[in-house]
């Protein structure tokens, strides 16, 4: 199945977040080899060049490293994975609160709902 991406937000950022989330959730374990750019681009139904850029971004963050001949791997740095988990969780929480605000529900009441 192609990835379900929002067409009103930049695709590149969504791809980066999706892979981050797959690393945090353990779909790709620490040290595990990642799919090739081409395979993942076809799976996601995005341009291979965009996928290449997303991998580049993840390498810059340090979540992914590449070995010249054998491909790309997930970092084994568990602290970094934990940090990414917190960042993604914070982002989701902020989105949740923003939606609650739209509905006229304040922070306190939103927390009660949880």
């Amino acid at each position: 199945m192609p990835w379900n991406l929002d067409s009103d937000k930049p695709i590149f950022i969504q791809i980066v977040e999706r892979i981050e989330s797959d690393i945090v959730s353990g779909k790709y374990a620490p040290g595990e080899k990642l799919p090739t750019v081409r395979d993942l681009a076809v799976e996601a139904a995005v341009n291979p060049n965009t996928m290449q850029k997303a991998y580049g971004e993840l390498e810059k963050i340090g979540l992914v490293y590449s070995q010249r001949t054998s491909g790309r791997f997930v970092t084994e740095d568990k602290t970094l994975i934990e940090k990414t988990r917190k960042e993604l969780a914070k982002k989701s929480a902020a989105e949740f609160l923003a939606r609650m605000k739209e509905l006229g529900i304040g922070k306190e009441d939103a927390i009660k709902l949880l």
Partner: peptide, 15 residues
Amino acid sequence: SVDELREETGKSLLD
């Protein structure tokens, strides 16, 4: 660039 359009306006290409 379609991603620039999304970034700058929050719109999809269809919009």
